[in-house]
Amino acid sequence: MSELILGIESSCDETGVALVRTREAPGQVPELLAHALHSQIEMHQAYGGVVPELASRDHIRRVLPLTDAVLREAGVALDAVDVVAYTRGPGLAGALLVGAGVASAMAAALDRPTLGVHHLEGHLLSPFLSADPPQFPFVALLVSGGHTQLMRVDGVGRYALLGETIDDAAGEAFDKSAKLLGLGYPGGPALSRLAGEGDARAFKLPRPLLHSGDLDFSFAGLKTAVLTQAQRLGQALPERRADLAASTQAAIVEVLVKKTLAALAATGLQRVVVAGGVGANRLLREQLDAACAQRGVRVHYPELHLCTDNGAMIAMAAAMRLQGGLEQPRRDYAFDVKPRWSLEEISASIP
């Protein structure tokens, strides 16, 4: 029997709510019925980054109106929901507590169970929301503001870490480099837009760990190189900003693409999933698609509007875990959050 899963995402600066229906037939991908998202970007712009207390307060204001909007769009009454899922971690503690608290209170009022979802598992499974969902097994490139990891994925809950960043994530490299160039918040998208006007070969920037022989990443040295180059340019920086942005983006993307290709070679797999906010980067998609096409490898992405944090990925992850019989939802309405939570922990719990 199919179930309706309401998913709530509140790990950082986006409030997302979505409704997903599980499928009765084994192996079928759950169906996204509706989703709604509110971004706090405009609110945080004045501060140049996310202010955790403001983020938490805004989640409180947004989550119930977004829930009403989702239910209206799906044409479903609240009491028809079978499970209320929420992001348990990782993320900002206060922001996570808002989603967990609202989900648990809602479930208690409805006499329905709850399910806490790993935020990165949501990203990892988000391409299953697309019109061209992947098939297991695959190599996953999780690339966002806080995480850069390569995973081998053999099924829901079956994840093996292949490599990860030892310092800054790729998204951090975009954002911090953008700040050094005097660009606004959020820096990553601003840098990418400016890079389209510049020459990616104008500055020779490092590609950290590109030839390390493993699948780990490092972007802190690149950020330092961007700072050094910006200081050298001095008053000439404004007229060379687009070139430096293009060179920075090219360095980050080259490392991501070549490490992903190395992961494919190491595993022998022929399918790649890219998830996380940086997965929306146009140059990354173009170069990874071209490199994988030469090797006969399929590449899957979430839809562009689902690359950032959203409730749809949380509802989908919960639905896929429930549909696969990997987890039982809770009915005691006690909840906790895990601001730091390794994806390998939930993989280790699967027999």
Rank of each mutant, 00 (worst) to 15 (best):
G184F: 00
N310Y: 13
P30W: 06
N281P: 03
A250N: 12
H147D: 05
I41S: 07
E344D: 14
G75C: 10
L244P: 12
V70M: 01
V63E: 02
A262P: 00
A280V: 04
A46W: 01
D243I: 02
Y185K: 03
I252K: 11
L269E: 14
R321M: 13
E327L: 09
P134C: 13
L120C: 14
S10V: 00
G49M: 04
T22W: 02
R240K: 14
A55T: 04
E254S: 07
Q45E: 13
D243Y: 04
V84L: 11
L97G: 04
L33V: 12
A80F: 03
E3Y: 10
R321Q: 15
L33S: 10
D199N: 15
P65D: 08
Q287E: 15
T228R: 14
D332N: 10
R88K: 14
L181Q: 10
P134K: 12
R241K: 15
L261V: 04
T165Q: 02
S130H: 09
A169Q: 00
H123D: 05
G198C: 03
Q294Y: 01
G213P: 02
F136K: 05
R331K: 13
A80S: 15
A109G: 15
A265C: 00
A74L: 11
Y185L: 01
A275W: 07
T224K: 15
E197Q: 15
L283P: 03
L150V: 08
P351Y: 02
M316W: 07
L343W: 06
A103C: 05
S10T: 14
T228D: 11
S247N: 12
K259M: 00
I5F: 06
P30M: 07
L161C: 12
K338I: 04
P238R: 14
R282A: 15
H35I: 01
R340P: 03
M320P: 06
E14P: 00
D332Q: 07
P134I: 09
E42C: 03
L71F: 09
F335R: 08
F136E: 04
D154Y: 09
E9A: 09
L191I: 13
L181A: 13
A190H: 08
R298V: 12
V255L: 06
I314P: 08
D243H: 04
P52G: 02
N281G: 03
Q235D: 15
L141R: 02
S247Y: 06
G276T: 05
Q149F: 11
R295W: 08
H123I: 05
P351E: 12
F219M: 06
L6P: 11
S126N: 12
R152D: 10
A25L: 14
R152P: 11
P238N: 12
F203Y: 14
R23V: 09
L264V: 06
R207K: 14
I350G: 00
A275P: 10
S349C: 08
D216P: 00
L37A: 01
M316I: 11
L66S: 05
L306C: 09
R331N: 13
D13Q: 12
T228G: 07
E172V: 02
A55G: 05
